[in-house]
């Protein structure tokens, strides 16, 4: 009965005496809400797995990266930097800068989740990505979400990311020779495939990307490729402070 009402509450206004905070049935709704994210994650994670293994990173490390880091853009960046021969300090620093944005997203989400125990939030924050954030941000405006809903959402997205990486990484070894000779361009095609739809949605973003690229080129005359990516990122994002509108 309790569960029944919980299930209904996923769709309708909660009953007056219904307390969502302990309803484990919300796990199912979270998993269901993750479906569009999974559809987006699978092709990207498969391609990531392929590119990573093709570039010489072992299948185990490739899957571990997806499982431990769980942040798509920074994983691709790390593979690219490893290919360029960048060192550990450069790669970890660049990852830090790139994933700093999660801090903002997490701040905004945690503001909506004051009713959830800190213990839960400490665990659930690991699953925060651009995609789960945007879904959750909208959802939390509409209704009160509980920890089980977020767990279902994050874990489903996470699982598809890790499994997709494994599938892609396993496929890498069966790719025909003619195709793998062209694989060097794959990672750049992937970066472009992430950037272009964003620019289509907001043309101002191209100014940020171009500034990032030009700064990176200039800095690369003085510093290593890894540091020039970090430098280009910081400078390019400063342009964003001036050109992006408030939401």
């Amino acid at each position: 009965m309790e569960r029944e009402r919980g299930l209904q509450a996923g769709y309708h206004q909660p009953a007056v005496d219904y307390d969502v905070s302990q309803d484990k049935g919300q796990l199912f709704f979270g998993m269901k809400a993750a479906i569009p994210i999974v559809i987006g994650f699978i092709p990207v994670s498969i391609t990531f797995g392929m590119v990573s293994v093709q570039s010489g990173i072992s299948l185990v490390n490739t899957v571990l990266m997806s499982g431990l880091v769980f942040a798509g853009a920074s994983q691709l960046m790390a593979v690219n930097m490893l290919m360029m021969g960048a060192g550990a300090v450069e790669i970890v620093s660049a990852t830090f800068v790139l994933n700093l944005r999660h801090f903002i997203m997490s701040m905004s989400i945690m503001n909506e989740l004051k009713h959830i125990l800190k213990f839960w939030k400490t665990i659930l924050s690991f699953g925060l990505t651009d995609e789960t954030f945007s879904l959750l941000a909208v959802r939390a405006q509409e209704t009160k979400v509980n920890q089980y809903y977020i767990l279902g959402l994050n874990f489903t997205a996470y699982l598809s990311w890790v499994l997709g990486t494994f599938v892609g990484g396993s496929l890498a070894s069966v790719i025909p020779e003619t195709i793998s000779s062209g694989m060097a361009v794959a990672i750049y095609a992937m970066f472009i495939g992430l950037l272009v739809p964003a620019v289509r949605a907001n043309w101002r973003l191209i100014m940020i990307a171009v500034t990032g690229a030009v700064s990176c080129l200039i800095i690369s005359k003085m510093l290593s490729s890894g540091w020039s990516i970090i430098g280009g990122t910081i400078v390019g994002a400063v342009i964003g402070v001036f050109v992006l509108e408030e939401e």
Binding site: M77, M84, V97, Y188, I208, G212, I229, T233
Partner: peptide, 24 residues
């Protein structure tokens, strides 16, 4: 907030160019 939001696009730009010139 705007600076942090801009980072992914700046990093994509920096990753694509000049790196893409080294494909071959």
């Amino acid at each position: 907030n705007r600076w942090l939001k801009s980072i992914p696009y700046a990093v994509l730009g920096a990753l694509i160019f000049p790196g893409i010139l080294t494909v071959d």
